[in-house]
Design a protein around this nucleic acid. Structure first.
Lengths: 221, 221
DNA sequence: GTCTCCCTCCTCCTTTGGAAGGAGGAGCAC
DNA sequence: GTGCTCCTCCTTCCAAAGGAGGAGGGAGAC
């Protein structure tokens, strides 16, 4: 380490915290990152809560964060970490390209959004860029983002009761069942459903249910 | 390779084909497997179709197969490979524990079903076991399996046209639209829908759509 | 050949869903 | 106070969905 004066620009490696609920994925990422001298994996976490603790304790430069995890999801973890430690940059790494996830992750403060199907080079580049405070979005993610930004009123926010209603619609319930569940008349439920369809520009409750699932408003189980 | 008479029981490494649509995961698995001399990664594939081609070409001992992939999913690939090359053992590796996936993968001929959250040791063990023709199921997967076997008639299989219909129902289409799409009368569609609801013991097309999503009959996008 | 399943289409009927319109009251911002 | 949104409920009307039952033709199993 004495006379490599002209070779490696980064004097000290970027400290990386890995967050993913899949052990295999963590080990894999660690191995992949070990290929480059620029990176040093300083810790691992299996969910959002652990991620926050480890970020606090280890103070990494960059957090490589999966978004879909048990206990606490990545978006919440990103929000929390960026609030308490704004200097830590976060690279969101996920297997699915979900509109809502992209929006939420970026809004929460992610510096990059990558799909797991991307190659190691892109990953390296994104981490380096993030460590410099730059932003890297997966090309596909960018498309989703602009598509969403261009049509914001498409999902002009539903009211509380409409959201409640939609949730139940997405569980396959009839208006009558929803009315009983919500403690209102069936007429009211129909009003809500009509508003939902109108606001979302949909044409049937089935479409509304599918929409709710896509938006992650409800889960499939 | 001349006089290592007493060290490594496996004289030649197990030839492994990696199948996963996520580049990062593939690279990671490759690195992890390279830790052990027992394994040699002889090829990679990013979807089911590629997996079949590579299995044909490379004749690996074991295929490490992700189940949820574009173009052709893992279950179909397993079925195809086991049909043409029954000696190749397949380890299903997936991130989600979905009842239907477990059933289908095992029924298609998978020798093991592992979650990606399992550690490297379990993975090594499963591949070794698979190469010997033994079966390794994730404990959680085993529970799902027996739970399903106990209630088989819940999903007495739909006919081809009924399945077509359900797929379109799960896209939010009306009977009229489905009729146009399928080139039959609306009456016929209603007949199919009624059969679907009856067979699956459901009570509305929305429930049918949700069922189709849960079963992975259609994707959410 | 028969038998069975599937696909197709039909009628008759009831229930559900959805559009369009109005309307009263609660809560909040100004 | 006024104005606004939201929630609630109402009526009317029509379309869509779904149940029950029958029926003909085709393909494959026997």
């Amino acid at each position: 380490m004495s006379d490599n004066d002209a070779l490696q620009p980064p004097v000290e490696p970027i400290r990386v915290l890995l967050v993913d609920d899949h052990n295999v994925v963590r080990q894999g990422l660690k191995m992949v990152l070990s290929l480059e001298d620029d990176f040093e994996v300083v810790g691992e976490a299996a969910n959002g809560r652990e991620a926050i603790e480890e970020a606090e304790r280890l103070v990494p430069h960059v957090v490589l964060m999966d978004l879909l995890m048990p206990v606490m999801n990545g978006v919440e973890a990103i929000r929390s970490i960026k609030r308490s430690q704004p200097d830590i940059e976060i690279v969101a790494l996920t297997s699915v390209l979900e509109d809502r996830l992209v929006i939420d992750a970026v809004e929460a403060g992610a510096a990059a959004y990558l799909l797991k199907e991307t190659g190691p080079e892109t990953l390296f580049e994104a981490i380096l860029a993030a460590s410099r405070g730059e932003v890297r979005l997966d090309p596909k993610a960018q498309k989703r983002l602009v598509r969403e930004v261009r049509t914001p009123e498409m999902r002009e926010s539903l009211t509380a009761r409409e959201t409640d209603t939609l949730r139940l619609v997405a569980r396959g319930m009839t208006n009558k069942e929803i009315a009983r569940e919500m403690g209102v008349s069936e007429v009211t439920v129909k009003t809500h459903v009509s508003s939902i369809l109108s606001k979302l520009n949909l044409h049937s409750r089935t479409q509304a249910a599918l929409f709710a699932l896509k938006e992650g408003l409800v889960g499939l189980d």
